[in-house]
């Protein structure tokens, strides 16, 4: 069972490495969106420090949503998804494997680049640390919840826009607690509460999202 899990992750990572442009599009989208805001709002450091957490998180939300379409679409198109579903392995484990690989390719780069962008926004060291922790906890949730939306809209006309409509409302709690944690720590309130809630959401998404996504995949493949 876990061999299958590892196989899926290794396969998806290998596929992503063969097509590196996919990784870089998401990453550069994130960087560009974050860099656009100072141009629109003005270079005042105080304002930027204030809005930094929110902008980082919104940009991360949009970037991870952009990448969702590729989660199942390619495998669906060439039929390998169907073959995976025919295997005796539990489907939710395969979905979880795909989500983990997807996060490693699209989520982790965002987390790693975020401190650099935080410096651009003049965040304090403590603020950057909290940003890193919340992104580390939050971006997997985005991939997990996004998998449900991606599975539901598989092969549906206008799928890309539809995914955003389905998934973005469900992302909002992550946004609130993620950006809230950084804000709370910058203003000296302590970010623990927000981080614990974010961790709780992560655990819940980890337990239930693969099951829901697996059920959605079964529907889409009927």
């Amino acid at each position: 069972m876990f061999t299958a899990f590892q196989c899926i992750i290794r396969r998806d990572l290998l596929l992503a490495l063969r097509r590196r442009s996919d990784i870089f599009t998401t990453l550069f989208f994130f960087i560009i969106v974050v860099s656009l805001f100072p141009l629109g709002i003005g270079p005042d450091a105080d304002t930027l420090r204030l809005i930094a957490p929110g902008i980082m998180w919104v940009a991360a939300l949009l970037a991870s949503m952009l990448a969702l379409e590729r989660l199942f679409a390619n495998d669906y198109a060439d039929g390998s998804l169907e073959q995976m579903m025919l295997t005796p392995q539990p489907l939710f484990l395969l979905v979880l494997g795909k989500v983990v690989a997807h996060w490693l390719v699209t989520g982790l780069p965002l987390v790693l680049i975020a401190p650099l962008l935080g410096v651009q926004y003049d965040l304090s060291v403590e603020g950057v640390e909290i940003l890193l922790i919340t992104l580390l906890l939050g971006t997997p949730v985005l991939s997990l919840i996004g998998a449900i939306g991606a599975a539901l809209t598989l092969g549906v006309r206008g799928g890309g826009v539809l995914v955003s409509l389905l998934v973005l409302p469900l992302y909002i709690p992550v946004l609130i607690f993620g950006a809230g944690a950084v804000e709370a720590s910058v203003s000296g309130l302590g970010a623990e509460g927000h981080i614990y809630l974010l961790a709780a959401i992560f655990v819940m998404a980890l337990c239930f999202a693969p099951l829901a996504a697996a059920a959605a995949l079964r529907l889409s493949m009927e």
């Binding site: 449900i148 539901l152 809209t153 539809l162 409302p169 829901a212 059920a215 529907l219 889409s220």
Partner: peptide
């Protein structure tokens, strides 16, 4: 989102089930 999902899937059986799943989520 629910109404958009339902109206964009033409097969009513799949639309029903996909919508139901979305509502539960």
């Amino acid at each position: 989102g629910f109404m958009a999902l339902q109206s964009s899937i033409s097969d009513s059986r799949r639309a029903d089930r996909a919508g139901a799943l979305l509502v539960l989520v």
